[in-house]
Design a protein around this nucleic acid. Sequence first.
DNA 1: TAAAAAGAAGTGGTCAGACCACTCTATGGC
DNA 2: GCCATAGAGTGGTCTGACCACTTCTTTTTA
Lengths: 219, 219
Amino acid sequence: MQNPKPPSKMFLDIVGELRTIIREEGIKTGGKLPSERELVERLQAGRSTIREALRSLELLGLIETRRGEGTFLVDFQKHQLVEVLAAFIMQQPKSVIDVRETRKIHETAAIALVCKDSSLRSLPVWQSLLTKIDADGGILREDIIREMIVATGNRLSLKIWFLLKQYSKAPYQEMTGSDENDIVRELLNNVLDGDELQTLNAYSKWMELVDGERGERKQ
Amino acid sequence: MQNPKPPSKMFLDIVGELRTIIREEGIKTGGKLPSERELVERLQAGRSTIREALRSLELLGLIETRRGEGTFLVDFQKHQLVEVLAAFIMQQPKSVIDVRETRKIHETAAIALVCKDSSLRSLPVWQSLLTKIDADGGILREDIIREMIVATGNRLSLKIWFLLKQYSKAPYQEMTGSDENDIVRELLNNVLDGDELQTLNAYSKWMELVDGERGERKQ
DNA sequence: TAAAAAGAAGTGGTCAGACCACTCTATGGC
DNA sequence: GCCATAGAGTGGTCTGACCACTTCTTTTTA
């Protein structure tokens, strides 16, 4: 007598049925889903219920809706899932530190991978960055790191890093100073040499400098 | 006169406003959100719109609704949402690799940090895990890694890892086999010794074994 | 008096219908 | 042929209604 009638969330069922429809009709990325009104008939549910399911999938970034046109299956890369999560997580006080640390996790992993892979570290972009520093007297901090992660080809990591960067206090949008340029040059040269240890070393020094400027003295 | 109202997506605004409410009213984990009808008045929107936003957050696992009671803020840990999500995402081929690689980034970083920090690697939990393997003849794969990330204290990384884990094909919910146990023991012993290099080595071997079982031969 | 039953209020779950705003297409006039 | 317009189709939003469930209060009953 517990609950033979568990009030199963109908909108969750709809989500499942939508998946079935997508599979059975072979709807590809960018393809069009049935209209809301058609789904109402096919799934025998009210339009609001259908919409609740669709809106959920939209927030997850799995579908995209365009007024006047329809609802479309979207590329997985764009999912703003992490965005929403980040926004909520950001409300916890302690998490500012976590964000910075997690950001560094992705940065470190990218740097290490680039150093390890000879085809990656021989990319012309590193030399270009060095030239740019000399020419402009500095460089945007995020440009360096971004190129590293882009080079790894891991778009999910890039996406996560991009989000974390926005929540970081570190002034990533600023130009590097003159002291900083020395470290950055060292870092890039180490990449060209394929010296993983020294590169990560330079990265650590760099981050200490950047974080230190802000007077952040946590742990 | 360009676009006084270009972007629709009011339900996304609602999501944002809900976040504000949660922050300003200091609603904690497990706490109750305003009722749907109250939100209708406060946010000046229709109930269906409010519900679309709430349903989205529910699918994300950020809130929980109980009929007759209300809507509650949920703990980050307990989201069962992702099964649906995974089913969708798994239909996209290339991203599977990114998900796995990104998951490993977080795992590697956690392992390295634990090895580096003497107060972390001397935690009693590692010995407990070893004992458990001998007693039960194996251990859940995810238990090992989770303990590692938990130990680092980075809850954001933990959260991301948790999500990625569920996207992964790797059978993390399974018990380790007997061959595997040797590697895991080696890994944990290396942690106790504080040998970062050897620990990461053991981790690599472990992952090769796990991925290999599944016949995944990508890149 | 205390326990049980009935009721009231509040909440989420669902549905139907009505508009609106937008996009696309076909129709018609020039 | 070209372009403007009307229509159909689609998502976006609101309103009101009803149901199912939980909780608390009130009333009835033993």
